[in-house]
Each structure stands twice: as C-alpha cells, then as structure tokens.
Design a protein around this nucleic acid. Sequence first.
RNA 1: GGUCCAGUAACUCAGUGGUAGAGUAUCUGCCUUUUAAGUAGAGAGUCGAUGGUUCGAGUCCAUCCUGGAUCACCA
Length: 498
Amino acid sequence: MDSNISQLLKLRREKLSKIIENGINPYPINSQRSHYINEFMTDKETWISSEKPISVCGRLVAMRRQGKLGFGNIEDISGKIQIYVAQNITGEDNYEVFKLCDTGDFVQVEGTLFFTQAGEYSIKVAKITLLSKNLRPLPAVKEKTVDGKVIRYDEFADIELRYRKRYLDLLLNPNHRQVFVLRSNIMKGIRKFLESRDYIEVETPILQPLYGGANARPFTTHHNTLDTDLYLRIALELYLKRLIVGGFERVFELGKNFRNEGMDRTHNPEFTMLELYEAFTDLNGMMELTESLIKFLAKEVIGKDTFTFQGKQVTIAGDWKKASMIDLIKEHTGFDATDFDIDKITAMCKQHKIEIPKGAGAGKMISLLFETFVEDQLIQPTFVTDFPKEISPLAKAKPDNPNLTDRFELLIAGNEFANAFSELNDPLDQRARFEAQAKLKELGDEEANVVDEDFLEALEYGMPPMGGLGIGIDRLIMLLTENDSIKEVILFPQMKPE
RNA sequence: GGUCCAGUAACUCAGUGGUAGAGUAUCUGCCUUUUAAGUAGAGAGUCGAUGGUUCGAGUCCAUCCUGGAUCACCA
C-alpha cells in the first residue's frame, strides 16, 4: 500500500527478528498474573510497605524511555498503572527486552509497588516478559489529567474508522468501551428483572419459512439441502405466541431481528429486540411492566433518571403520560378523527400534502396524521394508546370501538421505544386481519403481513388472553447511555463494504 | 434516493491558483525519576478516485466513491 505504513510494518518485523535472534519467544504460551491492576488501587501505602511481589499482565499503552531507565503504562481490563523499569534493577539482559518493547505489546511485569519521585504510584519492575509482540503501530493517543479531568490529544476520532476498526476504537477510547460494558449490564438487568417476574427465556428460529409479526421487508436466503427459500425473521412475535399456546405463560426472547430497509441514526438492518408475552394480563399489565423495567434499568444499571438524548432533556421519573392517538391529534391540530370519517380525514391529509398510500383507509391516515403532527413533539415518555385496527393486525380490538385496538407505543424524544398490545387470540378475527394485510400486499405494500396458516392453526387450539410487548433494545441503550446514533451502541454496525 | 458538509503523513489537523506543511507517532544519537512535552537529527504523502479548465490544481469545475448531518422511505 503506501510506503510509510509498510515502512513502519517492516521496522516492527525487523524488531521481531531481533527478538527471536536474542532467544526470546515473542508469542509464548504461558503468562502468569497474580493480580488485576485495580487491586492495587486501594490501600496503596499497605501495598508499598508490604513489598509484596506481584505480577501483572497487560498491554503497554505508553513508553517513555530515557537511557538506562524508562517508564511505561500498562493497561489491563481493570485499569492502568505506570511501570518503572531501570537497568540496575532488571539487569542488563532483561533491560534489553524492555528496549525491544513497543507501545501495543502485551507484557508481563513482575515487581513491587512504590511511589516515584514525582509521586506517581508505579510498579518497580524486577522482570519484564514479552507476551505478544505488536507488529502494527497503534494510533498515537495521549492524555493528561488536569484537576481530575482527562484531556486527550490526537484522539482516534474518525467516525468511519472507529466503526470499521472497532477493536481500535475500543482499545483507544475507554469511553466507547464503557458503552458496551453498560450494554452488557443492561442486558443482564433485563434478564434479572424478567426472571424476578417468573419469565423464562427462550430462543426461536431466525430462519423462517414465512416472516411475520411486523410490517417490514425481510431478507431472503436459501437452504441448499431443503432447496427452499427462507426468510430472516423481522419479529419474534408469532413463534413466541405459539409457545403460549403450548402452555408457557410468561416467555421472553432477546434476539436479533433483520429488516431489509434503510439505515439511519436509529435504524440498523440487524437490531436487537426484546419481546415478551404474558398470559392472563392485558395492555395495562404491559404498561406497568414497561415503565417498571425501564425505571429499573435506569436506577440499577445507570443510576440516574434524567438523560440527554438527541439534544433533549428526558426524564423518566414520575408517572408517564398516557393519551390516545386520536386525542393527541386533536390536541396538536384541533382535528377530530373520532368518527373515522374517511372523506374528512382524506381532506385533512391532502390539505397538508401527506401522501396517501394505495389501499389506505381512515385508520392508516390517522396514523399518518399522528406521525406528521404529533410524534416528534412527544419528548417525555408517553404511552400513545388506541391505535387504529387497520395498522394493528395482531392486536385485539377495543370492545367499545371496533375501529381501534388495545395497543400502545411508548414514545420518548419522538422515537418509538416500545410497542405492546392485548394480543389478538380470536383465530377467525386473526384470519380476517391477515387477509386484509394480504390485500394491501397485492396493492403493492411491500411491508404488509403475509397469511401464516400454521400460526392460525395454533390459535385455533386456543391461546389465552395475554399482553405482549416489544422493546427496541438498541434504542433503549442509546437513551440510557446518551448516544444519538445506533451505530454507537452496536459493536459492528452495518457499513458498505470497503 | 434528494440536499448540505467532510475526505491532505500512522493519528489530529493547517494549507482560499505558484516548490505539499505542523504537532504527535516512527527511526537514529545522547540521557538513571518521566508522566500529552528530556534533547539533537532523520525518514515518511498518487492531497478519496477519474476527467476537465489553466502556463501551472490539494485549491476551480464535472462525475464517481466513502462517511456524517438532514429530509424522504421506514418502526
């Protein structure tokens, strides 16, 4: 490629040869760690006065060599500490090893703890051992601490490089590594919360002969032995409901969904979804659960209840607002869609230049009005309820209004965070809903649901009344970690091939 | 897909038509208490790509690539 980097690589390889010539194994099998670095960080005086020999393994992240002595910083998963390496302590031969070390090498240092003349808590190295030689120099990042604040220089900040070479981002930007630690903790928190409510965790197929449970275009793949096309799931819903038919009463799945659609700040083609189903409860149960779960995660994992998200202050404290979609439209526009009068609603859409898709009825248009006039105004957590039946093919209709379903979406900062309903368990009604969707598909709606005969058959065996909930986990993590782009909370976001 | 912004050394960036630069990193010399930073020197770039305008293009124009923001589409 370019000559500069190849020159740097060549130099490192020459150094490697020299190491091997000196009889040093640059990639030994064994390493011996007696402590993690953060174990020394309390009771420093005790560690120093004990003169206890310790052994630390980690990556050299900085080197400051000065003639026959030098300093470095060694970092492991727990933290970072300075090492002090002096030839009159290590001996000449071992000091040669230190001289052959570079930033980026993994090393093991043995020694004792002390304070340097400058007062820095450090390991006085008796012996340094190379554990893994670095052949490709790491980008230079330096930092200093002023009044407890870390100032970084030449930070590895190029967004594209950070995503494409995520290992470097994690290595060089501890704040970005921390996001994924929090992500792990959030996942653990979700499991802990649901287990405390007697949910069991299940896994259902990603490769499916039919896709369903959401409005979305799927990815298609092919199974060679079966010689059949399969779809990557777009939702977990229909298989989880089969499990409730099968006698489980509380199930959840945390897994990847795949949707063959556009990508932006809040959409990645594969994303993580939590879906759960609970028999003998309804939408109100799901509302309580959603609010409790998110408050639990904020408190237990993050430790706060106010977040800056997409430039807005969001607080999850207090009781969350609940309002019906039609009431919200009325509140924001003065327009009353209660009567589902299609002529009136069509006129309203046309007046505001809202494009009406083929086959759209009053219900679909109401949802378009909501998206146009209300959605991004809902900053604080809001349960939007009473969705039109037309756009809710898996939700039970409201007993007092057949145009509406017992469904909510949770909106925060104008983004959808959760979707839940009292699940439709009437097999005949469900068939009619699927058939209405199939008509839309014929009219060209690529995201309409398909008729799933196997699922309908399962419903005919009987499914109890229940509440179901889906939460987009990546977006929830964006909120809780205060990241505005989904790419910041997914380790390897989708990118165009280089 | 539309619009806007960006792409120059490994990293962070400067360079508004006239010999491609800085700091860090790297390499070499000296150096036994440094901590973004000892010190002296050195090497390092197809300026995202292609075409054009011009005596002359990193710079101006066109097209394309990649990324970001935003709108559209979309949960």
